[in-house]
Design a protein around this nucleic acid. Sequence first.
RNA 1: GGUCUAGUAGCUCAGUUGGAUAGAGCAACAGCCUUCUAAGCUGUGGGUCACAGGUUCGAAUCCUGUCUAGAUCACCA
Length: 601
Amino acid sequence: AKQYMNIELQLKNKVLEALQQMYGQVVDPENIQIQKTRKDFEGDYTLVVFPLLRISKKPPEQTATEIGDYLKKNIEDISEFNVIKGFLNLTLNTCFWISFLNSVGRNKNYGFITNKENPNTVLIEYSSPNTNKPLHLGHIRNNLLGYSIAKIIASQGDNAIKVNLVNDRGIHICKSMLAWQKWGNNITPEKANKKGDHLVGDFYVKFDQEYKKQIEELVKSGLSEDDAKKNAPLILEAQEMLRKWEAKDEATISLWKEMNSWVLKGFDVTYKNLGIDFDRVYFESETYKLGKEIVIKGIEKGVFIKRDDGSVWVDLTEEGLDQKLLLRSDGTSVYITQDIGTAHQRFADFNAHELIYVVGNEQNYHFQVLKLIMHKLGYSFAEYLFHLSYGMVELPEGKMKSREGTVVDADDLMDEMISTAEEMSKELGKLDEYGEVEKSQINKTIGLGALKYFILKVDPKKNMTFDPKESIDFNGNTGPFIQYTYARIASLIKKAQARNKIIPNEINTDVATTNKELQLIKQIHTYPTILFDAAETLSPAVVANFVYDLAKDYNQFYHDHPILNEENEQVSALRLYLSQQIASIIKSGMSLLGIDVPERM
RNA sequence: GGUCUAGUAGCUCAGUUGGAUAGAGCAACAGCCUUCUAAGCUGUGGGUCACAGGUUCGAAUCCUGUCUAGAUCACCA
């Protein structure tokens, strides 16, 4: 991002120079604060002089004025300056901004770093579904975050690899399988005319219902609730099934394979509709035994402790945590053992530099422990394990609970969004002249755009509230608003071409400009910084809010300033050119969020 | 109880390295379609930045404590 920030660097260096010349002191660059001038003040960049008063030994206003004079004399891009209290506001001349705008027009990948010298390979693990039920709203947040972050990382010139780890084994899978055996009558997704993940999910729910009934009966017959839960025939059967699976019993394995394939097919449809994908998919059934050897070596090294019963533990009390189990007394792996193995394997397989896990914040402790363990084992990549912890998605009524049926299903939600977009556009008569295929394509883009933007504009680490009925709007700070802005510019350009108006390849630097135009150009100028920040903080929200601000400012501009101006050719050329650059940045920013922009809507 | 995260307008959320008078949208109210797309624009009202201290030229932002909410602390994954 540095290449775009050179004006800030130049200012900073000149300030250092000024301080040395005028006050004879070499100053720590840390103390030079150059920031963008707030909208309500005149100027482009502001130097905060408070930290420099110790050096100048003069009052703030005087210090600022002296530095301002020096900078104006020595930097030709500065046209004027003003001083308010301890703030030195510098104004750059129009020529600078127009030639900057021209450079944006020449560079098709403005903001993107296209040939980084030493790109890092960054693995992003996300989605990680269980194959016993369909995806829900929580997965949507995960999927959108993971996908977007991979794109943002790639935009900074690094090599982003998207990885999915499918949790396809364990007792929860057996529950669905057992219910299907008992009550399924050999039904298949084809026969039921239902997506495979939903069908299997139904059996998971059925299991739970029947299991509850059994518990109730057992409690009536005098058992305690805990005992009833442990001894209900259904749960015992499910456990037996898991044992058979681990012993590779043929019938069990083949049922497992079949039902998993149904679910995975269903997931593929959901992923495709959401517009996300993976470079590599791992299955837990293949990786769940990994890590055991590493743990055993760890015992030899004295990093882990083996207890008398044979179980293996790591002691993290010095780090302020507890002891954590790594191998059961029967020698089998637990969840974290597997993660030790997969981390090792992935860094080796991809020669990776960094591994990002997109996982909900309920697993913060788990990843804290994982990182410490890898560190203790002496892996140098331990510090490049990063848990992108995102908050829960809550409904107005509170947390989503699958057992209480308050889960918002991913497929249903997407359908609902699209049909709402459909109703809206019908009501507004927006798409009347288009064909059915085109209409449904645009409605899909808009409906999903609304959903994706709504979720991504929120800081990942925060819990968020989602009201399916009211929260998603198509007006205001939303995806459709941004899409609308883009579509408008697209049609504007089309219309200009129809009128034989030529959009220039370059704008003359002495063109007359308005403040509004300059303001938009300045906003474009910050785009690379935004992308850089987003990659640093792993937060698509930064990009989302930037794109909204840009679209909003453009919309305001659009209303007050005619763009297809017959009378003043030169001004209209600038506005047309500017509009085009803004459209391209909106498109680029939205693509980093995985949101499409329609050419019309 | 220990640890972690959050608390900003009625609601949903922004707020950059500590920087100037705290920002949007929704909802409410009042306007703007014979003009490049009104999914838009303009205006009004709405704030003890949870609370109390501290650090300093300056705190929504950093530190300490309190309160509230959530998560987590399994031979589950």
